[in-house]
Amino acid sequence: MADFLRRHAAALISLVAVVAYCGFIEWMWGWGRILSAWSAIGPGPVALALGLMIVTHLVRCLRVYDYFRADLSGAFLRLFRVTQVHNLANILLPFRAGEASFFVLMRSEFAMPMTRSAASLLWMRVLDLHALLAVGLIGLVVKAPLVWPAALAWCAYCAAPILGFAFQKPLFAFVIRRFPRKVARLAEGVLSGLPSSWGPFFRAWAMTVLNWTVKVVTIAWILHLLGVPGFSAPLGGALGGELSSVLPAHAPGGVGTYPAGIVAGALAFGAGDGADVLTALSQAAVNVHLMVLVSAAAGTLLSLVLAPRAAQGARPAA
């Protein structure tokens, strides 16, 4: 029994968390009340939102495919399956434990060294966090008392990756020399995962911005349709939810943490206050979380249909 618990601890924790979360939602509002909000929106917007979310999965896969284009030529569908399984594992497993599945899947599917895939993933996560904040901060710029200085500061922040890439060698050398060894190792990992030239860098950056723009705007749009008023509050809610999923404090399946991130982000961006506002916002957050989970499951099923089996005899990565 003890061996079983050790082997399946992550899965059992996830199962208990999901069951408890479902029970809490039923006790608090009732699933019938939660799900009835979708009928008010209508099937058209729901289908469009799910389609746009799956488009973001394809864009993320294309970013990885472009990064490893010399090694993965002609293997886009197989890579799509790998990235979708990794995405689902990342959502379902607690504390970012699902990130490790990317290294394992890339090694088993494409015989790629784990250090190489880990370095690339670290670099892409840095881009993800930067782009996610850049998109989300638009709401603060719009609401800023002095719009033009805020807009200039936002533009400077958006251009930071270009400056960082241009001066990467002296910057990383400074960090490696001056910071503690743990930070230096992280910097070395990011450096080893950086593109070798401007072309791959700009393509990765552009696809990262496209991915997060589409995803955050789609989530904000659905939040607006679900009753979150204004422009900034839905955008802040989308930013808060997605930040909760990329930071280490991530519950299994995002249960609790993802809706809480949406609520916190929307409130921070001016959703209002009061019990009624909080109740409506919480219900909208639960529904958006369901949409994110459904889109991840749909993307995974689509990838399994398009590439049902791993190809035999995958050639080793260079």
Rank of each mutant, 00 (worst) to 15 (best):
V104D: 13
P113K: 07
S101Y: 07
C61M: 04
A47K: 00
L72N: 00
A70G: 12
F110W: 10
N87T: 13
H130P: 10
L137S: 08
A119V: 13
L52P: 05
L127W: 04
A118N: 00
M112Y: 13
F110Q: 06
Y67I: 05
V55H: 01
L88K: 13
A100N: 14
R63Y: 03
D66K: 15
R69D: 07
S101T: 15
L88S: 07
L50K: 02
L79A: 10
L88W: 09
V85K: 05
S108Y: 13
M114E: 12
V64D: 00
Y65K: 05
L132S: 02
L129S: 12
I91A: 11
L132I: 14
L132P: 04
L137I: 10
S120D: 04
F76N: 01
F110S: 06
R69S: 12
L133E: 01
A111C: 12
M53A: 15
R81Y: 05
L127R: 08
V55D: 01
E99H: 02
A97Y: 00
F103Y: 09
N90H: 15
L79G: 12
L127T: 02
L48W: 05
M106D: 03
D128E: 11
A100C: 10
F102D: 00
R116E: 10
T56K: 01
A47H: 04
A89P: 00
S101Q: 05
P94M: 00
Y67K: 03
H86R: 11
D66Q: 15
A49S: 11
A47V: 07
E109M: 05
D71G: 06
D66M: 13
A47L: 06
E99G: 08
A119H: 14
D66P: 08
H57K: 14
R96D: 10
S108Q: 14
G51W: 10
S117Q: 01
Y67R: 00
L48T: 09
A75C: 04
R63V: 05
C61D: 04
A97S: 12
R96N: 06
L137D: 09
S101M: 15
A118H: 00
A131P: 09
N87Y: 07
F110E: 00
G51F: 11
S73Y: 03
L92I: 08
L58N: 02
G74W: 15
P113M: 04
M106I: 14
V135Y: 04
A119F: 08
L105F: 09
R78E: 14
H130C: 10
L92Y: 02
T83N: 08
G74M: 08
Y67V: 04
W123G: 02
V85S: 05
G51I: 06
M106P: 15
L132K: 03
R107Q: 15
L50H: 01
L52H: 06
D128G: 09
L79Y: 05
R125Y: 01
R81A: 12
L127D: 08
N87D: 01
P94Q: 10
L58T: 07
L62M: 12
L93H: 02
